[in-house]
Amino acid sequence: MNLQLHNPENLFPPYRNYSHAVQVSGNTSFLFISGLNGYLSNGTDMPETFEEQAELIWQHLGTILNSAGMNYQHLVSLRFYLADPSYDEANVKTLMKYLGSHAPARTVICSQLLDKRWKLEIEAVAAK
């Protein structure tokens, strides 16, 4: 088994003991993407609205997938953490924008997130 870390330079800096994604290679290549949030590239600032954070997170996700030679169609599992259930409809609209008819397994969890500014966190698994 070969593990490759994916921490693209144009994303915010990774935390301690964290990678934005880990790719497992063999006959099939799996990419496990850590929970992403809406930080700008400086790793400190983030947009205030759910919609802006969601757009930024999906862009981060696309950047990570691209770094592994994958795209959104390679996603096999998604886990969404919403800071409030009222964000569900906006979350689904953004999901549909990026995935179209592609339908990976997914879970939505509503909970208090680590930083009160976070409205959304997305964790993903992709395979190729």
Results as ranks from 00 to 15, higher is better:
18 Y>S: 11
19 S>Y: 14
20 H>P: 07
20 H>L: 02
23 Q>R: 07
23 Q>C: 06
24 V>K: 13
25 S>R: 10
28 T>I: 14
28 T>N: 12
33 I>M: 08
33 I>Q: 08
33 I>D: 06
34 S>M: 02
34 S>H: 00
37 N>E: 11
38 G>R: 03
39 Y>D: 04
42 N>I: 03
43 G>F: 01
45 D>F: 02
46 M>W: 03
50 F>T: 01
53 Q>K: 07
53 Q>M: 04
53 Q>S: 02
55 E>I: 04
55 E>F: 07
55 E>T: 09
56 L>Q: 06
56 L>P: 05
56 L>E: 06
56 L>D: 00
59 Q>F: 11
59 Q>H: 10
59 Q>D: 10
60 H>W: 03
62 G>W: 04
66 N>C: 11
66 N>H: 12
71 N>Y: 05
72 Y>A: 13
72 Y>D: 03
75 L>C: 03
77 S>E: 14
80 F>Y: 15
80 F>S: 00
80 F>L: 07
81 Y>E: 10
81 Y>G: 08
81 Y>K: 09
82 L>P: 05
85 P>H: 06
88 D>I: 14
88 D>K: 14
88 D>V: 10
92 V>M: 13
92 V>I: 13
93 K>R: 15
94 T>L: 07
95 L>G: 00
96 M>T: 11
100 G>N: 08
102 H>K: 10
103 A>G: 01
103 A>N: 13
107 T>H: 09
111 S>M: 15
112 Q>N: 12
116 K>W: 06
116 K>Y: 12
116 K>P: 11
117 R>I: 00
121 E>P: 02
123 E>H: 08
124 A>R: 07
